[in-house]
């Protein structure tokens, strides 16, 4: 819901010279991250992704494009997969956030993590946390059943190394889907 009444005035050009508030107030935000309450004092312009990576030090969630075009930043918010790069941390007050760091129980990997290792469902590993969170989100949704459906609903996560068939193998194993197609 964007208000259309304002636009950059004619004549203004790069770089931008419009008025902006000098010091935006910081906000105190409580996020529940991987089962732990985290209180953050941050400015509203901090994305959830940057809050995790730069302010909390949870660098498992990756920045691949910062524009919602690759899926590397996928985390689960209240069980649903979202792009943390296009989310302001202040808007997630009180939410339960699960990142890649929150999936294993101690030394015991989450079955999806196990399956990714077993099926070599990665190469460089940079898209992997996002793929795994997305795959868990997909299973939570309970909609995709066939390999083709999983493939379509995993298409928000780009893997430049091209591990897609192995990613599907891993997810199918966890879902217990038999056979291909």
């Amino acid at each position: 819901m964007i208000n259309p009444r304002e636009y950059i005035e004619p004549g203004s050009s790069w770089p931008l010279g419009h008025a902006v508030p000098d010091q935006p107030a910081t906000h105190t935000v409580k996020l529940n991250i991987n089962g732990q309450d985290v209180h953050l004092k941050i400015e509203p312009w901090v994305s959830l992704l940057d809050a995790l990576r730069e302010y909390i030090g949870l660098t498992g969630t990756k920045k691949g494009c910062d524009h919602g075009q690759c899926g590397a930043c996928t985390v689960l918010v209240d069980g649903k997969r979202i792009n943390s790069c296009l989310t302001l941390a202040v808007m997630k007050q009180g939410c339960e956030i699960t990142t890649i760091e929150g999936l294993a129980k101690g030394d015991e990997l989450h079955p999806m993590q196990e399956a990714f290792v077993e099926h070599d469902a990665y190469q460089c590993g940079y898209c992997t946390p996002g793929q795994i969170c997305s795959a868990i989100g997909l299973i939570n949704e309970g909609i995709a059943n066939t390999r083709d459906e999983i493939s379509e609903l995993m298409s928000g996560n780009i893997c430049r190394c091209g591990a897609y068939p192995h990613i599907l193998d891993a997810i199918e194993q966890v879902k217990g889907v038999a056979g291909h197609e």
């Binding site: 498992g60 990142t99 294993a104």
Partner: peptide
Amino acid sequence: RVDGRAKVTG
């Protein structure tokens, strides 16, 4: 991969 665990845990 020997580094698999590191990659899937972040």
